[in-house]
Amino acid sequence: MTLRTRSLAALLLGAALACGAPAAARADVTLLNVSYDPTRELYVAFNRSFAEKWKAETGETVTIRQSHGGSGKQARSVIDGIDADVVTLALAYDIDEIAASGRMAKDWQAARPHNSAPYTSTIVFLVRKGNPKRITDWGDLVKPDVRVITPNPRTSGGARWNFLAAYGYALDKAGGDEAAARDFVTRLFRNVPVLDTGARGSTITFVQRGIGDVLLAWENEAFLAVEELGPDKFDIVVPSVSILAEPPVAIVDQVVDKRGTRPVAEAYLNHLYSPEGQELAARHYYRPRLEAVAQRHADRFPKVTLFTIDEKFGGWTNAQTRFFGDGGVFDQIYAPGR
């Protein structure tokens, strides 16, 4: 028994030591990019491109660590202390919350061009091949026999864009009548059978589990789903109007100052605005800001009338409290006795 105890102890110790050894060769510098769900593929390619560029320019090896999840969850991790050098999230409000916690400057959005959003996107519909329910615009989503898949706007950044796009459409349609717009989104959400917490969860539900007739999705997510899972299964439908989604990026001041990584973090985010970065964004179906790159990929991105959150809803902070706060418009949709 003693022998056995000893060998067990040795085994455990051995395992502990083996695991304690660093997984990868030590890099000169590391960055942690805390991002949201649909950017996984983009940042795999972009991180490679940036590492090469940084190596060529400074001789330093940079390793970028990634964390992905729902935008709100990711911002929560940063607030609670995950040491993210940069955040690349789904909407400005989530970064505002990080700034409010004191981890970065409150005016972060002015630090980079285009509201600190190096690429944009919009919300489109993904439908089953041949569009059996004949869904062509937002108005079709409230038909009684249409099942709509969207994530939960209270936890998913993408879902908030979905919600606001639908609301904005209804507002236009009703000539600015708030009650009518509210009624429209209420009817729309009554057609939602599953409310996942993140954009990826919804895509899985729609694509893999075969639930629903239409998925409200980021444009890039919809294209990716079609690309990954076969163009013979899904069609993309572009509505008459949609929202201009600006996923912003920022540096977490507290972290880069402590770790001394500001220069490389700055270079990392700026690389997103460079022609290479913009090219990669476009290839992953994010709409580039650079005119030249946008021209080159013009056939990739369908023309659609886009409105911004500032012109329709007076910015994120207003929209957040009004629509997604406690007791806000979204909560009222799910209030009992609706």
Binding site: L32, R65, S67, H68, G69, S77, I82
Partner: peptide, 9 residues
Amino acid sequence: VVSGHIRGE
């Protein structure tokens, strides 16, 4: 809840 989901780490 406590992981932070950093890939490979």
